[in-house]
Design a binder for these strands. Structure first.
Length: 491
RNA sequence: GGGCCGCUAGCUCAACUGGUAGAGCAGCUGACUCUUAAUCAGCAGGUUCAGAGUUCGAGCCUCUGGCGGCUCACCA
């Protein structure tokens, strides 16, 4: 028998012992009057007046210091920690003895009044307490917490219990998303929910997850973007619309990619990509100011300043600066491929020109963009949903925003010409069909039909929420900001 | 998918060149009326990720597999 089984066995015995004393170790509820934080604040406020209030506190036991006839127990709830003081002289022999069956990890409720110990710590003098949930497993070590990364992700609840900074990170994540929502609501965007299950997974070029609907006997895809449905709503007259939702991409996993992640997309009628640049700057800086109280945030050993205006560079200039290649000098796939191979870059033969340029960006430019930077005016091959630049047919009005060396936003002046949209879809399907690996390319005719009814000129913006949270919490891995990142199942 | 690194008690970590697997925390027994990483005395606790191989002898060397981390590839 392993030790863990023995520990669990010992705790099961304590469970029986409690039951035999007429105590239900898993009662249905507890009337909590204050959180730990509220209780501490209340005491500081009332300390002078000397009118002690009776409180009911509840939380998980994280430390027990027993000294014979008295015991100190620290509990932790969602708001923080507070110390409880158990005195046999106050509780009586019978109740005090029950403490023997209480372990670190158990959840208890305790009532009493607050006082200060000799060392000045605000503490609850317990006059009554009850078991709210008996824990059968020991908690991770109190001093080092849970360190093993794999265990932290697989048993995130233990991570949250024993690592305070992890708890506060996910609280911050919640605040960030709330702040994004509030920012958009204040600007009259309305929030919507669009289908996750789609018969055509459009709006981006990524491999989708496939599933099957039995009653309809049809294959369906999990969405890879929010774009095409939100633009249908622009057609429908929702002039400002947004969605924050999960999208799914059946591709590689890395420190910047999780198969499912949270995307915010918003669309604003009568706006163009320059308007969306200002919106992006305003949104990021407002959210940072609101959630962390400043627009300067640490990023490794550097400091990022999110205050507008952000640096703006054309994609062409950025690539020229980063790699020495002016892609206008290499107007076709072959010449660009040759140039890149001459520079000893590993060039994938199946890539089209857009993807080659994309590779130049991600290897030569992106890693250096630590301060917030907009790269704008992209080659048309890379962007089938974006509108052509007004004075250059080879470029589209599109930008991507980079912070801390990663892409955090993508935006364009939306293509609203249905005839051109259909052509661009066809070109793309054709191009991709040439290169490809048997993936079928289906055109979303229903979306084109919507455009045929007339979509106003529109600016669109997509933000990777998980990456935004990485920036605002100084985390290098997306898994640190997703509660349950995708891992292989064991066994 | 490739390369490199890792996996030892519930948790955090040791273990020399291949030579009896250890400590702290948690647990159990006892002492203790202001502790807070409580303290003191004692006890118990191991499929060293799994399997195979080399060897008199493997936590350590070799091979295969699993899981994780980093990185490259992939990725609008």
């Amino acid at each position: 028998m392993g030790r863990l089984e023995r520990i669990v066995g010992q705790r099961l015995e304590k469970l029986d012992k409690l039951r035999s004393l007429g105590i239900n170790p898993y009662p249905h509820c507890y009337q909590r009057s204050h959180t730990a934080k509220q209780a501490l604040a209340l005491f500081e406020q009332q300390e002078a007046s000397q009118t002690p209030t009776e409180l009911n506190l509840a939380g998980r036991i994280i430390a027990i210091r027993s000294m014979g006839k008295i015991s100190f127990i620290t509990i932790q709830d969602g708001s923080g920690k507070i110390q409880l003081f158990f005195n046999r002289a106050v509780l009586g022999e019978e109740k005090y003895t029950i403490l023997k069956e209480v372990d670190i990890g158990d959840i208890i409720g305790a009532s009493g009044t607050l006082f200060r110990t000799k060392t000045g710590e605000i503490t609850l003098q317990v006059v009554n307490f009850s078991m709210l949930s008996k824990a059968l497993h020991p908690l991770p070590e109190k001093w080092h917490g849970l360190v093993d990364i794999e265990a932290r992700y697989r048993q995130r609840y233990l991570d949250l219990i024993s690592n305070e900074d992890v708890m506060s990170l996910f609280v911050r994540r919640s605040s960030i998303i709330a702040a994004v929502r509030q920012f958009l609501h204040h600007r009259s965007f309305i929030e919507v929910e669009t289908p996750v299950l789609q018969s055509v997974a459009g709006g981006a070029m990524a491999r989708p997850f496939m599933t099957h609907h039995h009653a309809l006997d049809r294959d369906l895809y999990l969405r890879i973007a929010l774009e095409l449905y939100l633009k249908r709503l622009i057609v429908g007259g929702m002039d400002r619309v947004f969605e924050i939702g999960r999208v799914f991409r059946n591709e590689g996993i890395s420190t910047k990619h999780n198969p499912e992640f949270t995307m915010m997309e918003c669309y604003q009628a009568y706006a163009d990509y320059l308007d969306m640049m200002r919106l992006t700057e305003d949104m990021f800086s407002t959210v940072a100011q609101q959630v962390i109280g400043t627009t300067t945030v640490p990023c490794g050993d550097q400091t990022i300043n999110l205050a507008p205006p952000w640096k703006r560079m054309t994609l062409r200039d950025a690539i020229r600066e980063g790699s020495g290649i002016d892609f206008d000098d290499y107007p076709d796939i072959d010449s660009l491929q040759k140039k890149m191979r001459d520079m000893k870059m590993d060039v994938d033969m199946t890539k089209d020109r857009g993807r080659l340029i994309d590779e130049l960006v991600s290897t030569c430019v992106e890693p250096h963009l630590i301060q917030p930077t907009f790269l704008y005016d992209y080659p048309i091959e890379m962007s089938p949903l974006a509108k052509r630049k007004r004075d250059d047919d080879h470029l589209v009005e599109r930008f991507e925003a980079f912070i801390g060396g990663i892409e955090v936003a993508n935006s364009f002046t939306e293509l609203n010409n249905p005839l051109e949209q259909e052509e661009r879809f066809k070109d793309q399907a054709h191009e991709h069909g040439k290169s490809a690996d048997g993936e079928e390319e289906v055109i979303d005719d229903d979306f084109v039909l919507a455009l045929e009814y007339g979509m106003p000129p529109t600016g669109g913006l997509g933000v990777g929420i998980d990456r935004l949270i990485m920036i605002l919490t100084d985390k290098q891995s997306i898994r640190e900001v997703i509660l349950f990142p995708q891992l292989k199942t064991k066994e």
